[in-house]
Design a protein around this nucleic acid. Structure first.
Length: 778
DNA sequence: CGTGGCATAGTTTTT
DNA sequence: CTATGCCACG
């Protein structure tokens, strides 16, 4: 009895085929991770391949982590030396050792999309291009596409030919790359691009890695782009022991450069490649699977395959159309409360992040604990970026963007003029921005600002010393936040803002602590880089009992017993862009996305749509998504609204006859923004807090209990409950966590919360919200 | 130099 | 509608 007996014949075939190129076409839920992990185990235990000669590439860190965990269980010792990581982190590791061949320094920094944008603006400004004609976003996209296709600035210029605009973009591309290099920085696309460049530049380096990775496995192969394909080809070029796993029907990252031809043409690129299809699905009921098959069949140019399952038929797929978008959200949440699945077994999926708002509202309203994946990345939040910029500047002064970001945060009286002068001087001298700051006295025309800059650099140097003398990253962050006055400045901004932001910083500190615990020799640079490559999905903690809200894209690779597909409307999903496009593969891509969504469901699938939805401030009517129509009637149980004539509609929806009247009214009583007493308890207005809907945050339900409890429950950022009564009154002595002791001056019954004025012994009079201030009676 | 107000533009999905 | 950017004022 071996561990391989539990695999089906096809899976075994894939596991035992170890030499030469292998394409595993793994349909949704066909156990591909099982195959990959068992294959690794087989290589090590039966073929005696050294663990360090194996490389497994996944798309997200989360997937990498899971795979590593499962491999650990299968393979006793040595599994830690297998490379299991994403394309991006693999490339970083390679570049950290050899990028000097390309004239960069090995302690390069990684620019995220925000940094990229900042830099691009600087470049566009410097080149004096009409911002109307050359939008940063558009140029970044063009460059990104070029990099994904391995097109260098020089080639871009050649391809541009006589096209004036393209010529300009080529020049911007060139300048942008020069700036990156001067800053010793790489953007996301560069990580792959530069690694390929490195391999092309040095036979010696390439051979080193070819010998290192004799066995390579790539997951989600349908989503690789040209650069990634090239990278893999180079690495596997010598031994050709390349095993790729993917499903062409789940290719959903075209916008990111993914080239579906990579998987469709694999056999062409690797003659003699073995192809194994995994078609048995272990995840879903046959109703769900048949619905998925029915939808995807409408695509052309796919690899022929037929997924089947011997799970039971299960319940039919359901579809419900609602009048209003908020009713749709409400319907979903009600259903969650009704059907009895644990919260953590439910996922609500949608096409665009904007749709999460209504769902959140309804979850909060009905006390359903949820977890939001996506939106603004945690690491892109202002306060986090600020702190990280400090750390970057402390770690090495090479990152100009980071230094420029924080030199006047908190306010130090160093304005744009001064920063501009320093920047100009630093580029004249060919030194970094930070180094220029250090030599501030040498810069002409500085005046008063010189002293301020001097104070700044002195402080930064003191932080460096702190780090030298062995302070942990945690201690460093704490020192930065308190000694620079960052925390103070934050608190001055307002109670609610400060609270959420400080909690975010707290979360970053936690991250730093767990990093330090995991590594024998914690290193600030390494920490920064780890943090630079995390995706939202990586931070998803599925141990808590919460409903998951996320985009269809984020859902790839996951599964849930109960799945809701919301916003099934033509114009939203498939999106307007795809419908309008002449390129019909755009709709096909959306259809694949739908296929991914459907196949996430194990037991029950409910699709929903609204006939009316607010989009960009105006109400839009939509038809039911064509994807729903593609599911044969016998598989689906549909509740539709009748298509009504316009006049009748007015009677139904709005007292004043306006079609959108009802939605306005609803907006008025919504949880966001408006003051309203129609709920058991008001909630903070988090439509205004930047942290809202950002990254993953946890909104805790009342311990998993549904309704009844009048206090709405938020977690983390929103650990807010309006106290029905305060245990202190005017004149009482209280204690505040930061301001110390004081006397309550007044309590106002505000719209959302009690506003308490307190005269602190040390800090004077402050007005604060009761639920945030956490005042204790003494 | 900092702030606040106004105008404008933008909108998919993310490593 | 909302976020961001720019400009004018204090």
């Amino acid at each position: 009895m071996s561990i391989y007996d539990s695999l089906n014949p096809k899976q075994q075939e894939a596991v035992f085929h170890t030499e030469g190129p292998l394409l595993i076409l793994a349909g949704a839920g066909s156990g591909k991770t099982r195959v990959l992990t068992h294959r690794i185990a087989y290589l090590i235990e039966e073929k005696h391949v050294k663990p360090w000669n194996i490389m497994a590439i996944t798309f997200t860190n989360k997937a990498a982590g899971e795979m590593r965990e499962r491999v650990d269980k299968l393979v006793g010792s040595g599994s830690e030396s297998i490379w299991v990581s994403t394309f991006h982190s693999s490339c970083v590791r390679i570049l950290r050792r050899f990028i000097e061949y390309l004239g960069y320094n090995t302690n390069f920094t990684i620019y995220d999309s925000d940094d990229q944008r900042t830099l691009m603006r600087q470049v566009l400004k410097k080149m004096d291009l009409d911002p109307k004609q050359f939008r940063d976003r558009a140029i970044i996209n063009a460059i990104s596409t070029a990099k994904n296709e391995l097109i260098s600035p020089q080639e871009y210029r050649l391809n541009a030919g006589g096209d004036w605009r393209e010529q300009k973009i080529a020049a911007v591309y060139q300048e942008y790359q020069d700036c990156l290099k001067r800053n010793n920085a790489l953007d996301f696309d560069d990580l792959i691009f530069k690694t390929v460049e490195l391999f092309n530049a040095s036979e010696e380096v390439l051979e080193y890695w070819q010998e290192r990775f004799c066995y390579i496995m790539v997951d989600e192969y349908q989503d690789t782009n040209t650069a990634q394909f090239r990278l893999i080809s180079l690495l596997a070029g010598k031994y050709k022991n390349l095993c790729v796993v993917g499903d062409d029907d789940q290719s959903i990252y075209k916008f990111r450069g993914a080239n579906i031809r990579n998987i469709l043409d694999f056999e062409g690129a690797y003659p003699g490649a073995r192809v194994i299809k995994l078609e048995q699905n272990y995840r879903s009921t046959s109703h769900i699977l048949d619905a998925a098959n029915a939808v995807i069949q409408n695509n052309e140019g796919r690899k022929d395959k037929a997924l089947w399952t011997d799970n039971g038929a299960g319940e039919p797929v359901e579809f419900r159309q609602f009048e209003q978008a908020y009713e749709e959200a409400e319907g979903i949440v009600r259903d969650i409360l009704k059907h009895g699945y644990a919260y953590q077994d439910c996922a609500v999926l949608y096409r665009t992040n904007a749709q999460s708002r209504l769902l959140e509202e309804q979850c909060i309203r009905n006390n359903v604990p949820y977890r939001l994946v996506g939106g603004v990345n945690f690491y892109q939040r202002k306060e986090i970026k600020d702190v990280l910029s400090y750390l970057k500047t402390i770690a090495n002064g090479h990152d100009d963007l980071a230094a420029q970001r924080i030199i006047n945060v908190p306010k130090r009286g160093i304005g744009a003029t001064t920063i501009g002068r320093i920047t100009a001087w630093s580029s004249e001298q060919g030194i970094s921005f930070y180094d220029a700051c250090v030599r501030i006295l040498a810069i002409p025309g500085m005046g008063k600002a010189a002293a301020r800059v001097g104070k700044f650099t002195a402080q930064m140097e003191s932080f460096r010393e702190l780090l030298q003398t062995g302070a942990s990253i945690k201690e460093l962050i704490e020192a930065v936040v308190s000694e620079t006055g960052y925390q103070e400045a934050l608190e001055a901004e307002g109670e609610i803002e400060a609270q959420t932001r400080l909690e975010n910083i707290e979360e970053l500190i936690n991250k730093a602590v767990s990093y330090s615990e995991e590594h024998e020799q914690p290193d600030l640079n390494e920490f920064l880089e780890e943090v630079a490559l995390v995706a939202d999905i990586d931070r998803m903690d599925d141990s808590e009992n919460r409903v998951t809200l996320m985009t269809l894209h984020s859902a790839k690779g996951l599964e849930f017993p109960m799945v809701y597909l919301s916003g099934m409307e033509d114009g939203l999903f498939p999106g307007m862009m795809a419908l309008m496009s002449d390129d019909k593969t755009e709709v096909e891509e959306e259809r694949r996305l739908c296929y991914v969504g459907i196949t996430r469901a194990k037991e029950r699938l409910l699709m929903t749509a609204a006939r009316l939805r607010m989009v960009n401030g105006e109400t839009r009517y939509s038809k039911v998504s064509r994807f729903v129509e593609e599911i044969p009637a016998e598989l689906i149980q549909a509740e539709r609204l009748y298509e009504r004539a316009g006049r009748q509609r007015n009677n139904e929806t709005g007292a004043d006859g306006l079609p959108w009247a009802k939605s306005r009214q609803q907006k008025g009583v919504s949880m966001f923004g408006m003051k309203s007493n129609s709920y058991d308890s008001p909630t903070p207005d988090f439509s205004g807090t930047p942290a809202c809907g950002a990254g993953i945050f946890d909104a805790a339900g009342a311990g998993g209990r549904a309704s009844k409890n009048p206090a709405p429950a938020f977690g983390k950022q929103f650990t807010v409950q309006r106290q029905t009564a305060l245990d202190y009154g005017v004149g009482d002595r209280i204690r505040h966590i930061k301001f110390g002791e004081g006397t309550v001056q007044a309590i106002e019954d505000g719209a959302r919360d009690y506003e308490v004025s307190v005269n602190f012994d040390g800090a004077g009079t402050k007005k604060m919200f009761a639920s945030f201030a956490k005042l204790k009676k003494i």
